[in-house]
Amino acid sequence: MSASTAPAGTLYSHGGDEWIVVQLDEAMSLDVNLKAQVITRALADLDLPGVREICLSNASYMVRLDPDVVNPAALVEQLKEIEAQSTDFRSITLSTRIVDIPVLFEDEWTAATVKRFRDRHQRPDLTDLEFGAELNGFSTTDDFIDAMVSAPALISMIGFVPTVPWGYQLVPEDRQIEVPKYVRPRTFTPERAFGWGGAFSAIYPVDGAGGYQLFGLCPAPIVQPAQTLPDFRDSYTFPRPGDLFNYRKIERPEFDEVRARVEEGTFAYRIEELEFTPADWFARPDETVASMKELLYGA
């Protein structure tokens, strides 16, 4: 039986015989996610026998392996070597893209869901948005929304159900928004709901269970199995690890207009290619974010 003390550093853990979960840190930070991105890329480049899949997570990563090909304990030793070889995670340059993600906050669909599952919430007397605002010290929900759209989110993990992007906002740690997940997960969340759990924003691609606080609804899809929209021609999934999602508050007319374009098959995301060097952001966070937005929307 494991000790009940928190791990001092990286925790290598066997998930049964077919998985290894590597927790690089208990806490989330941009640094730890950059570390996970560097290690998982190095691991992929090695193309080790028996490694079936490499799953990037926020402050961790996971390996799905074939124990008939590689001994899980031996693989952990290799993973430790890879970790020891990687040291500098800020001066990397991520070739990525910044994407405009319109969000209708306080929409009627997520509002109905929020109401339906009050019995699973910490504060049944508040909406999720009111709860998040109060918890993070905002006097109004509008101020809270402004903070959520103030800087883009780095996609630090993809999963839950196909294509859910976890977004870690590019603001200094003292400005990070943080909310708990529901006490007990909901059994329903509407398709394209925008939410927040822990320090992460997320979009629910399809109807399903979920535990994040729900704040709004996106008009545009992030998964499209039919692959008819221009952004989905090459892949049924839209988000990629390392993307920068810039959430933008919209009103109902724009929501309806985007929905119509999605329905007629003409919608395309506003996207700009970008070379992101984390060291720049660490040195000048607000200026770096401002120039990212300028690149996306023009001066």
Partner: peptide, 12 residues
């Protein structure tokens, strides 16, 4: 940081 306040929560 990032996990949420419930003791059953971890960073995703």
């Amino acid at each position: 940081r990032g996990a949420g306040s419930d003791p059953a929560n971890v960073v995703d």
